[in-house]
Structure formats: C-alpha cells, structure tokens
Design a protein around this nucleic acid. Structure first.
Lengths: 120, 120
DNA sequence: AAAACACTTGACGAAATCATCAAGTGTTCT
DNA sequence: AGAACACTTGATGATTTCGTCAAGTGTTTT
C-alpha cells in the first residue's frame, strides 16, 4: 500500500485550512473495527496463524488445534462473515484460506508486534 | 480416487505423524489478540485515527468526537492498559499519543484495508 | 486556602459475545 | 438407496464488555 492510500483513509487534509483534522468516514471506521474485532480473539488468531501457512480443511484445523469441530466451524463462520477467510469445497472437505494478502499482512504485522511487546 | 484427497488433507496416518506447522506461542497469540481486540471498536478506532495525526488532550478529543468526557476517558484507559497509547501530563492537561510507530502502522494498515473492502 | 479545571475511577445495569450441543445439509461410498 | 463422512447451523445459557454517572484525584488560579 502506498502512503497516499493510507493518508486518504486517515482523512488527511490535503487542502490548506489546517483547523480541522478530518476522520475516516464512519463506514470505514466501522468496517475496520469489525475486521480488528474478528482478529481480536486468541483462538481465532491461532486459526489464522495456521491458515497463514497454507489452506486447510476444518478437520485438519481441528486436529492441529486440538479442539472440537463445531467450535472451530463457528469461529470460521465468523471469520468468513467478515471476509477474512474464504472457502473452497473439494469433495467432502471444505478448505479455508486467508481472503487476500492484505489480511495476511495485517495478521503478520499484528503477531510481530505481539512478539515484541510480549513479556514487557 | 478419493483417498488421494484425504491423504493430502490430513496425511495418511491421520495426525499421528503429521508435520507440525509452527504456531506462535499462546502468549504471543494472546497478546496480539488483546491488541486487535482493543482496536476492534469503532469509537476507540476513531480516537486512534485522530491521535494518528498528532497528540491531543482529552478535552480536544472529546470536542472533536462530540462525546462526553468520561466516556472518552474510559476508552483511553483501555487503550492505555493495552499500551496502545501513552500519556504525558502538562499542567492541567493530559496528552495522549500513539505508543509507537508499530501501532501507528497497524492502525494505518487496518484503515487502508477498511477503505478497500468498504461497501462491498 | 478555597475554588475551578481537567481529567480518572468504581460500580452497576444493559448489551454483545462465546462455547456448547443437538439437529441439519451436502457429498461420497457401497 | 442407504450409510458414512465432513462439516454447518440454530438455540441457549454463561461470560465478557460497554456506557453511564457519581465521586475522587491532581494541578493551577485566585
């Protein structure tokens, strides 16, 4: 992403009167907050950390995370509703993967920060 | 024909010899999720979008967001607890700013994604 | 010292979120 | 067609989170 895009999202004032600091539209804030909220759960994040490696079906995720399948499926449902993951059916299996590399980037950055600020 | 699919998905021994993919430690996941959770609220995010411009005291934030002061203060308290913002007292005023560039980057990236995926 | 200003905090009810489980759907195998 | 597999969904109760307001703290002004 380039700096201009970020600036527009922050609502930077490209004009010349400096008094008001514009906010992103409330739609953008709401959408962004919804994404962050979806990422803001330890178990969903573990799920996403696995999917950051490669696509996986629900059974494999269930087994790797040692949890029960409906629980995993519910979390995936929420992530799908927020368009953070996408699905692909192949035979009996449903494969999940991260929706795009922007999402992947967001998760990677978050985890990197989580690493650094851990234990402080 | 279909054995192949199952084999690729779960491995032939169905989890007793599957290669382990690295997961972040649960501490890192928990810390990261806590950060995302803190960012995952529209009003807190508006607050942070303003602080992305420059540091501000509570009164100014309150005025710009047209909300009541205790409400703003409570949100800032949560953000401070997660070390997403830091404070600096100057006379009667308490100035808030983003804790570091990494946090700023995270917010900017999130908003950029929120921009792109908005309205879809 | 007292008043005024700029916040911060504690507490409590309201609202949103989450895990769990039974029941349902879609696909493949026999 | 029926059974088995791989999920998905709806409902419900428990937990967590949030907004609100009264009361408290720290700083400056008078």
């Amino acid at each position: 992403m380039n700096q201009e895009t970020v600036g527009e999202c922050l609502g930077e004032d490209h004009g010349h009167g400096a008094a008001s600091l514009p906010l992103p539209s409330s739609e953008v804030c709401a959408r962004t907050a919804a994404i962050f909220r979806a990422l803001g759960d330890e178990r969903r994040l573990s799920l996403l950390a696995l999917l950051a490696h490669r696509e996986m079906c629900v059974s494999e995720l269930t087994e790797r995370l040692k949890d029960n399948l409906p629980a995993i499926s519910q979390r995936l449902k929420l992530l799908r509703a927020e368009r953070i993951v996408v699905t692909r059916r192949q035979g009996k299996h449903v494969f999940y993967s991260l929706a795009d590399n922007h999402v992947a980037q967001l998760i990677a950055n978050g985890l990197a920060h989580g690493c650094e600020s851990d234990g402080q």
